[in-house]
């Protein structure tokens, strides 16, 4: 197990370098001069432009710039945004907000998704199953920005149950509605996945054995069925945690949550190269760690999988 983890950690290095290089090239190969853009409509002073270019290392070649970026990164320096703030400083403000939002969405999709999946799996073909099937397909097929705006307009503005937009991003109670919107699609997926898995396992021989042993139904379902059915679900939830952390651009935008997604969106529209690269680097690390955790968890849940 220890060797496996070490190997996985070593494998992360090329993945990390590869992804950051790609994003670095993509950002700085974009047409347009970001420094000149800082001046807006005003005429740029060539001396200032040259000074800024030198400050951000833009006068060097791309490979040199990338090398500089990497070596600074290992010193813990993510660089400086074009807004003159440290990138690590900006992310330090945004990450806690995103973590809270992701947590709300994650708890929601895990608890309700699994509960609905178990229910529909056990009552397959019944009316509950049909209703949930229609609802989940509806949620999956509607784009998240539609769900987001609908929730904002109705729950926020028309019925006035909550604030339409988040005024304090660090107040977790205000993050509940965005969390529901963010987690809704995954919730639908989790419930479908759990249902399929339950339906598949309930016909298996070991469930028949469990019944033949005279176990009460709640034990057959709660221990024997759940334990086996949740293996693929946990895998999905793990990778989804990564997606929730970074993929909240739309939701964070609609509800004005000042998290990582919002930061990334603003950085892209503002052609703020250092901030884009810094944010994406953070997301890459999140994904890598999440996928390692999922793989390790998988081995814990299924003893047939052993890493050497």
């Amino acid at each position: 197990m220890g060797r496996y983890i070490l190997r996985r950690l070593l494998q992360m290095i090329p993945v990390f370098i590869g992804t950051t290089l790609i994003i670095f090239l993509a950002v700085y190969a974009l047409p347009g001069d970001p420094v000149k853009a800082l001046f807006g409509d005003k005429a740029a002073d060539p001396a200032t432009v040259a000074r800024l270019k030198h400050q951000y290392g833009l006068d060097k070649s791309l490979i040199e710039q990338y090398w500089m970026y990497l070596s600074n990164l290992f010193k813990g320096d993510l660089g400086t945004s074009f807004s003159q703030r440290e990138v690590s400083d900006i992310l330090g403000d945004a990450i806690p907000v995103t973590i809270q939002l992701a947590l709300v969405a994650f708890v929601l999709e895990a608890v309700f998704g699994i509960a609905l999946g178990m229910l529909t799996g056990l009552k397959r073909g019944k009316i509950v199953d049909q209703i949930v099937l229609v609802l989940t397909l509806l949620v999956i097929s509607i784009p998240i920005f539609v769900i987001g705006y609908l929730a904002q307009v109705y729950i926020g503005t028309k019925w006035g149950i909550v604030n339409p937009t988040v005024t304090d991003s660090n107040d977790i109670t205000q993050l509940i509605l965005p969390g529901i919107v963010l987690g809704s699609v995954s919730l639908a997926y989790v419930s479908r996945l759990t249902r399929t898995s339950v339906v598949e396992n309930i016909r298996s021989d070991y469930i028949r054995t469990a019944i033949a042993k005279g176990l009460p139904r709640r034990r057959v379902v709660g221990v024997h069925l759940m334990r086996n059915s949740l293996i693929p679900v946990v895998t999905f939830l793990g990778t989804d945690l990564g997606a929730l952390m970074g993929g909240a651009i739309v939701t964070e935008g609609i509800f004005n949550v000042k998290g990582v997604g919002n930061t990334l969106y603003k950085a892209i529209t503002g052609a703020d190269g250092p901030l884009v690269v810094g944010t994406v680097t953070f997301l890459v690390v999140v994904y890598l760690v999440a996928s390692l955790l999922v793989d390790l968890l998988y081995a814990v849940l299924d003893p047939r999988i052993r890493y050497a």
Binding site: Y206, R208, T209, A212, G214, H224, R227, N228, P303
Partner: peptide
């Protein structure tokens, strides 16, 4: 009655035993 008074042995023990629970657990469960 099941398990306590009338018990059953199945054909394919590999699929009839729960793959993710230890045999000790499955025996002790009775």
């Amino acid at each position: 009655i099941r398990g306590a008074k009338i018990a059953m042995i199945f054909q394919d023990a590999l699929s009839a035993l729960n793959p993710v629970l230890s045999v000790g657990y499955q025996l002790g469960e009775m």
